[in-house]
Write a protein that binds this DNA or RNA. Structure first.
Lengths: 138, 138
DNA sequence: TCTTGATGCTCTAGTGACTAGAGGCCCTAC
DNA sequence: GTAGGGCCTCTAGTCACTAGAGCATCAAGA
């Protein structure tokens, strides 16, 4: 049996966050000891590990709830789990694409200040004027 | 003079968002007409354009507030504007790096389901087990 | 056994950047 | 004059936590 603090250390999820996951129904309510403190078994550890990993991969708590719901009847809903994973992948790729455009524009803006005091300060002007941007962003 | 709705259409910032920016002191309070409705001049339009563009570039409202504060005394604080822009660039690059790792892991996980029913369903298992991951993420 | 300090408990409120809705007032065009 | 769209304020909700208050419990050492 693990205390909430041990669970936290083992998974890297902070204590208040664990209680929050329980509150919103993501993590099943564990048993309590005589002093009303939470006591977790291996299943609680596994569930929290699943959540942590999926969160690190950028899944929303809503998605994770759906994924965990599938866990009971795996065979049938493999397609559903796959769908969620693929949609998350598309999401991540889209974010990368947008961020690349932002980075290139920020580079352009930063270079305006390279010469020291000479061409300064075009940074604020560039930020105020989208028409100077090479491509579309957002 | 523009109404809040006209400003919204021109800049692409939603009406409640404009009021929100005013509430938090990012956008200066405009004048009002006889019926207590906001009326903006070109300066309001420019300020909102600046905010919009900087938001699209991923700057926080806090950063934008700092950037706009510099506007009055540009010469001196070019260095500060440049510092904020560069730190934002570093930030974006870091997010891209992390997202690339996530994408590659998500690709790996998605491929587990490629064969249809054969190897199904490893997706949920993979999500639950970080030790299967090739690299570090987050 | 007693004490001490870490850990645990519940509850409320705050974060950032909005978004939604209620209930009412104003403006413009017909 | 009236219809309907736009505008007003205010409150509360979103997501995924985070912080703090004020108190109870636990484990280890004296």
């Amino acid at each position: 049996m693990f205390s909430i603090g041990q669970l936290s250390k083992a998974t890297g999820v902070k204590v208040p966050t664990i209680r929050y996951y329980e509150e919103i129904g993501l993590l099943p309510e564990p048993g309590r000891n005589a002093g009303n403190q939470r006591r977790y078994g291996q299943d609680g550890m596994d569930a929290l590990g699943f959540i942590k990993h999926a969160r690190d991969l950028g899944f929303s708590l809503e998605d994770i709830k759906a994924l965990m719901g599938l866990d009971g009847h795996l065979g049938d809903d493999c397609a559903e789990a796959d769908r969620i994973a693929r949609s998350q992948l598309a999401n991540v790729r889209d974010r990368i694409r947008k961020l690349r455009q932002l980075a290139s524009e920020l580079e352009r803006i930063s270079h305006l200040c390279d010469g020291g005091n000479g061409g300064c300060c075009k940074v604020l002007t560039a930020l105020g004027d989208h028409s100077q941007c090479a491509g579309e962003h957002e």
